[in-house]
Design a protein around this nucleic acid. Structure first.
Lengths: 145, 145
DNA sequence: TTGGTTGCAAAACGTTTGCATGTGC
DNA sequence: GCACATGCAAACGTTTTGCAACCAA
């Protein structure tokens, strides 16, 4: 199985042991287009008929986040963290406020803006988060927008 | 006292009763350049020697957020909400990752980007959140950056 | 073998809620 | 007076942690 080897590599590169839970979690993140919560991951693993503890999910996500394998974020006024695989591409979220779908979009318009902020505020800028929200095509139709 | 009347107006316009707690909370938000947590507000009120319940702070913030008097948001991987007065200007956050200072900056470079997203993804865009993070001048000096 | 990983239960944390009491209008 | 605002304590949902058992290397 190709991806199994891939996950093993990812872990080995960071001196982390290869365990079935870690593989399962990375696999789920890898197969998910959208960022998901720890609980989503927990449920998906249970659905596959495997047993795991929620604290293992959290601990694994923490470990992977600390090594930049996973990106942890949170959305606007929701107080629940979401996780996604760090695919080393800079991207942003596009959120549907109705159906809660989360798209990830690749373009970034902010380089110049960051330069301006560095000049103006004397900040040494390391990165940014951007979420754009609105209605997706389907929901816009349903809402007559 | 001028600002007292101002806070009274704000509340009256939304058919909300003027109470000393609501005034206190709005005043704190008004005097704060940076967004703060519910607990920060709670502590500040206590420090002034007044008594208040934390749940009142939360309830008031919810009420004010529902009327767009206050803006509720959350930052990256922190799972705690922050609140600020809605000054009806579009703005973004500039965060220092070291000292945790949060500046609010007024310029927005995203109008064209949003148009592009609407075209490309068929989204009907309603708004966005942007946080830029890095080291503020003082911390950049301390860290030799 | 051994140190990192896991499960479990309990704790911690931010936030919300039910209910009785208090207060602005 | 009445509807709404508040305090308190308890409930809630998410996340973290202590400890003993387990397992990859």
């Amino acid at each position: 199985m190709k991806s199994k080897r891939k996950y093993h590599e990812i872990l080995k590169n960071e001196n982390l042991k290869s365990t079935k839970h870690r593989h399962a979690i990375i696999e789920i993140l890898d197969n998910n287009k959208y960022p998901i919560t720890a609980d989503d991951i927990f449920i998906k693993i249970k659905e596959k008929g495997h047993s795991i503890s929620l604290s293992t999910v959290y601990r694994t996500l923490d470990t992977l986040t600390a090594r930049d394998i996973v990106i942890k974020s949170s959305i606007a006024d929701k107080n629940q963290a979401i996780y996604e695989l760090n695919r080393n591409r800079h991207h942003h979220y596009l959120l549907c406020v109705k159906c809660r779908k989360i798209l990830t979009v690749g373009n970034c318009p902010l380089e110049e803006y960051e330069k301006m902020l560095e000049d103006r505020f004397g900040f040494k800028i390391k990165g940014h988060n951007l979420e754009v929200f609105g209605y997706c095509t389907e929901c816009a139709v349903k809402e007559n927008l």
